Amino acid sequence: MWLAMETAPHLSPLQVILSRHRLLEQVDNGVKDKRDLYDQLTVSRSTIDRAIRELEAENILLRRGSRCEFTRFGKLGSSESLDGGRFGR
């Protein structure tokens, strides 16, 4: 499986959410530990780390040790995009 990795520093938070939707779906489904994300998504560790950094920079995810969780903003934005809301895929 492919995880969209081509991102640019000028992307809006919504664009980051949409480009990282597979990782966010895993977090939304309860996969919070980075090691488990590596196992669930067939991409390299550096790819997962870069995706998490981008999501942190946009205040979508918060990293606590090796665990990731949504910020309030991240919950709102990801629920709109992941649930097929008006920002859906």
Rank of each mutant, 00 (worst) to 15 (best):
M1K: 10
M1N: 10
W2F: 12
L3V: 15
L3F: 13
L3K: 09
L3N: 10
A4L: 13
A4R: 14
M5F: 14
M5E: 15
E6V: 14
E6I: 14
T7D: 10
A8N: 14
H10V: 08
L11F: 15
S12D: 11
S12V: 06
S12C: 04
S12R: 14
P13F: 06
P13N: 02
P13V: 08
P13H: 06
L14A: 08
L14V: 14
L14N: 03
Q15C: 02
I17G: 00
S19L: 12
H21T: 07
R22C: 01
E25L: 10
E25S: 09
E25R: 14
V27G: 00
D28P: 00
D28W: 15
N29K: 15
V31P: 06
K32I: 05
D33T: 02
D33H: 13
D33G: 00
K34T: 11
K34W: 01
R35F: 10
D36E: 15
D36L: 10
L37F: 10
Y38D: 06
D39S: 11
D39A: 13
Q40W: 10
Q40D: 12
Q40I: 03
Q40C: 09
L41Q: 07
T42F: 13
V43Y: 11
V43W: 10
S44D: 12
R45M: 03
R45C: 00
R45H: 10
S46V: 09
S46H: 07
T47K: 08
D49M: 02
D49L: 02
R50H: 11
A51H: 13
A51V: 05
I52T: 10
I52E: 05
I52R: 02
I52W: 07
E54V: 05
E54K: 05
E54S: 08
L55Y: 09
E56Y: 03
E56G: 01
A57G: 09
E58V: 04
N59M: 04
I60A: 00
L61C: 02
L61Q: 03
L62A: 03
R63Y: 03
R64S: 10
R64Y: 08
G65I: 08
G65K: 07
G65M: 07
S66A: 06
S66F: 09
R67K: 12
C68A: 05
C68G: 00
E69R: 08
E69L: 08
F70D: 01
F70G: 00
F70Q: 01
F70T: 01
R72Q: 07
R72E: 10
R72Y: 11
R72N: 06
K75E: 12
L76V: 13
L76K: 08
L76S: 06
G77H: 07
G77R: 07
G77L: 14
S78R: 03
E80M: 09
E80Y: 12
S81Q: 06
L82P: 04
L82G: 01
G84Q: 02
G85F: 05
R86C: 01
F87I: 01
G88R: 07
R89F: 08
R89E: 08
